[in-house]
């Protein structure tokens, strides 16, 4: 690993100042499970690494505020998957957090880190898209909010401006019953990078939302408001026609060694069908209770 300087700011203002001063020479360190791999393999060679874990405003935690669930940027996957509210109201996020690597990885990897890497295969992105997550971002010009769907550009690239960092992730708490699920495909059952990752939610009004990743440069969010997808009695041809449309923008890379594009597209379809079924079943069981 090439040497670098290390900063451990205590406040957000100090952090932003460091980012302004060092520009692209600075890299933010939260969990480090991705950053340190890239520091070691030489794909990143920052002159300074800024550790966010002692920033007072960025203490990990999950709180409810004004009808939203606010997840602190440095909250790790282990705490997200164990959180009672997340498990109850954002099941797909809990499921996604539970498959981000091994226990050791989940004990370090943060939600904001997972999003800011902007890996097309990131497992938490689809669920957060489905839940209409918003990123709270602080920078030299103060705070702003970015809807997650407007955050991803392509692998490794987001709409964060220089000097900005994500401080929390906000999820609107559901106002009505909803069923949701996260599903993925991997090369083995043990932890693995997803070759397709998908989240689905179905609500009582029959609105189905699907988000999927690892089949293109960024995760995609699509939806069906016709009620057909969520209706188990709807004719299969009608449902498949809608899926054709919803999944049409998937463009898996032909160069990936994890699986071929044909397989990814087929699996996307399988996961979509299974996701809709599972989310619908959860909706039914939720309404029953």
């Amino acid at each position: 690993m090439q040497p670098f300087a290390y900063a451990r700011p205590a406040s957000l203002a100090e952090t932003v100042a460091l980012l302004e001063r060092h520009g692209p020479e600075a890299r933010l360190l939260a969990g480090g499970t991705d950053l340190i791999i890239r520091l070691r393999d030489g794909t990143l060679t920052p002159s300074i690494v800024v550790d966010l874990k002692r920033v007072a405003e960025l203490r990990p935690g999950i709180r409810e505020r004004d009808g939203r669930l606010v997840i602190g940027a440095t909250t790790v996957m282990t705490d997200i998957m164990a959180n009672a509210v997340v498990r109850r109201d954002f099941a797909a996020l809990a499921e996604a957090a539970a498959v981000v690597g091994s226990v050791q990885i989940r004990n370090r990897a943060t939600l904001a880190g997972n999003l800011c890497n902007a890996s097309p295969a990131a497992d938490t992105s689809p669920s957060l898209l489905v839940y209409d997550a918003t990123l709270v971002v602080t920078g030299p010009d103060g705070e702003r909010r970015i809807p997650l769907d407007a955050f991803f550009v392509r692998s490794g690239v987001t709409t964060l401006a220089h000097g900005e960092l994500v401080t929390s992730i906000e999820l609107p708490l559901p106002t009505a019953a909803r069923g949701s699920v996260h599903l993925r495909r991997t090369r083995r059952r043990g932890h693995d990078l997803a070759s397709v990752t998908l989240a689905c939610s179905v609500d009582g009004a029959g609105i189905t939302r699907l988000a999927y990743g690892s089949v293109g440069p960024r995760p995609l969010l699509v939806g069906d408001e016709s009620g057909v997808l969520a209706d188990p009695a709807a004719p299969e041809a009608a449902r498949e026609a809608i899926l054709d449309r919803l999944l049409a923008d998937a463009r898996p890379s032909p160069r990936s060694m994890r699986s071929g594009p044909d397989y990814r597209l087929a699996m996307l379809r399988v996961l979509a069908r299974r996701g809709i079924r599972a989310a619908s079943e959860r909706l039914v069981s939720r309404r029953a209770t």
Binding site: R188, G190, D192, L193, M257
Partner: peptide, 29 residues
């Protein structure tokens, strides 16, 4: 039988060098 293999590029370089993309069985497999 189920998962392992080296993958080469056209030039004969191993693409899946290392533990991220060379998969071996875990306790879940």
């Amino acid at each position: 039988t189920l998962m392992e293999h080296f993958i080469f590029d056209d030039g004969g370089r191993i693409r899946n060098l290392g533990a991220i993309d060379y998969r071996i069985p875990t306790s879940m497999d």
